[in-house]
């Protein structure tokens, strides 16, 4: 464990807890893409299924349980909670996320570390995580401006992946055989997807107005 990875995990944890807290306290999910939340639930379900078979550390197990629990409860809130679900604008959140699930699955069948169920699902979860934010970014473009909590959520998610890139660089130089091209490339693609959001996010911080994304 290195500081970049710990900071990355804590930032990731903060992003989901900030979102869950927002939805729970103000009983609203305005501006949040249910599609992105469902994709993240699939990412965690397919990546953490080894939770019950391989024990790595208490930290690892605890974090996996928290991520699984929070992502599925966010999906539950938006789909099922009688008050929260009313604030979900499904006619804006129209990104056909099956169009990204299938290509990621096909890609995982082609590119993986080993052709086993666990490895293919692991690669699938990495490809899916890289593009899971797309419905949320599309929704942000549509709704033009966003409230601060949604901005913070996307910002923390981007920061978590950027910190992970530092972690991979650190591990590459400190651990001889630590090579995970699949993780590195999908992680890099994911961070690049956030790049333009970061640009507008910092612009809005500068003139500290509402975050206006270009049409």
């Amino acid at each position: 464990m290195n500081i970049f990875r710990l900071a990355g995990d804590l930032t990731h944890l903060a992003s989901v807890l900030v979102l869950l807290l927002k939805i729970h306290t103000i009983k609203s999910c305005a501006g949040i893409s249910l599609k992105t939340q469902e994709l993240y639930a699939i990412v965690f379900a397919t990546r953490y299924l080894d939770l019950f078979t391989t024990y790595i550390s208490l930290y690892n197990t605890l974090m996996k349980l928290i991520f699984l629990g929070s992502s599925f409860s966010i999906v539950w809130y938006i789909r099922k909670h009688k008050i929260v679900r009313r604030s979900y604008d499904k006619d804006q959140d129209t990104f056909r996320h099956y169009f990204i699930v299938l290509p990621c699955f096909v890609l995982a069948l082609i590119i993986h570390e080993k052709f086993t169920v666990r490895e293919v699902l692991w690669a699938f979860s990495l490809y899916l995580e890289a593009v899971a934010i797309l419905p949320q970014l599309v929704l942000l473009q549509r709704t033009r401006n966003i409230d601060n909590l949604t901005g913070q959520y996307v910002f923390l998610l981007g920061a978590y992946r950027a910190l992970y890139i530092l972690n991979w660089i650190y591990r590459y130089f400190t651990e001889p055989h630590f090579v995970h091209w699949i993780t590195w490339i999908s992680g890099l693609v994911q961070t690049l997807l956030y790049a333009d959001f970061f640009y507008y996010y910092f612009q809005s911080m500068k003139n500290n107005g509402k975050l206006q994304l270009p049409a």
Binding site: H12, D50, H180
Partner: peptide, 10 residues
């Protein structure tokens, strides 16, 4: 090659 056991990252 990196065996699948060293998937210690979240």
């Amino acid at each position: 090659d990196s065996d699948s056991e060293d998937k210690d990252e979240l």
